[in-house]
Write a protein that binds this DNA or RNA. Sequence first.
RNA 1: GUGGCUGUAGCUCAAUGGCAGAGCACUUGACUGUGGAUCAAGGGGUUGAGGGUUCGAGCCCCUUCAGCCACCCCA
Length: 426
Amino acid sequence: MAKKTIIGSVKGTRDFYPERMAVRSWLYRTLKEVAEAFGYQEYEGPILETLDLYAAKSGEELVKEQAYVFEDRGGDLITLRPELTPTLARMIAQRQKQLHFPVRWWSFGPFWRYERPQKGRLREFFQWNVDMLGVDTPEADAEMMAIIAHFFRKVGLTPEMVQIRVNNRRLMDDHFQRLGIPAEARMAVSNWVDRRQKMSPADWEAYGRDIGLDAGQIHELVALLDDPNLWQESEELVRFFRAVEALGASEYVTYDAGIVRGLLYYTGTVFEAQEMAGEIRRAVLGGGRYDNLLADVGGEPLSGIGFAMGDVVITLVLEKYGLLPDRLQAHPAQVMVAVFAEDMLPHSLQLSSELRAAGLNVLMYPKAAKLGKQFKYANRLGIPVVALIGEDEAASHSVAVKNMTSGEQVVVPRAQAAEKICQFLA
RNA sequence: GUGGCUGUAGCUCAAUGGCAGAGCACUUGACUGUGGAUCAAGGGGUUGAGGGUUCGAGCCCCUUCAGCCACCCCA
């Protein structure tokens, strides 16, 4: 170990070295293309928000135990944003009178939650958010499926690898009411539904009785959860699936009465995407319809639908299937100008400038050194062409240009150097 | 917040309680105008940190920190 201890990074954060940054940038470019293909505009909010913004609606667990909360110098409680939707709601509410609805916006930025890091979960992560506000039709909900399907296809994820599971909270609430489950117990029941796959049947039933369900209610709820055609009772879901079909996204979407989602503010459609082999147990993305959020942050009532996808899990899934593109690590420099000797430095500086003026990405070796060392440097960095002005070239006003891929080297008049380099790059 | 596993060279990893090593990487040279291949030499370590047991600790014990994994929960 080094004698000096390097100061560590904050737990659960990542250092994006160039090779990792290349992956993040690729993901960003891909998301941008997908969102823009559907006419969505990019936006961003502040990283810091007041605790109040989340206190009402995001859910107790999220705010009390998972949010980064601290007091600023003025004594206000500040939160590192754990999600974007409340910020979006505020931004919309502030300009509600001047925006043209429906609004279609997307974003990709950092979020924090204070948890123990593990596979697929960190304390700082990036999230793609896509939302449409001002329409409350099932067809709008279906557009989210189309966006997600478009993204999956673009990165090579097939319906055999990932599926979006969809449910509707109104449908579930109607049944909860029919079964005599009081409104205040529905949150507990939703949590219970959510845990079904994670517990043994016996434990799960016992847990159900603990939250006040009787045997008859449990029996009926199990029948509901196992009914793949339950969606047909819901006019909303029937229209939703019809639209999903028309949008060509059906193969990625399935109905699942067990999907409830943890966030309090969802009121209608809810969904999450999962990796089908089950090796990556976390949701790839999740979202739903929120009818009351705008009013809750002080705006006029306005319905919205949206989803969020974290970079950590999607990267794991893409890695698993070998779908992260190669060649992401290509060095930006197309040509390196070597420095023959101390007194040749002006030639190298001028040549670099000339080549840049010709539109090339040029990296100059910053000082005179043994040529072997300089060529080795270019080779290690993967720079495809090296240009050099030695004494002979200086005398004849020419440039030696070497193709590092083929090994071919030619001497050309200085005015033709850029052209020759472009030939090598082609 | 609870539990398990792992910390040795830049990286991947060895080393019955008995001289801290290998491969790759790096530097230099063979090759005084040229990378990759080969050969040779070289630099690099408070074995995560602190304490304890022992004639002797990388190894055993305690504490602590970090990373990973699972639980909890999931935006």
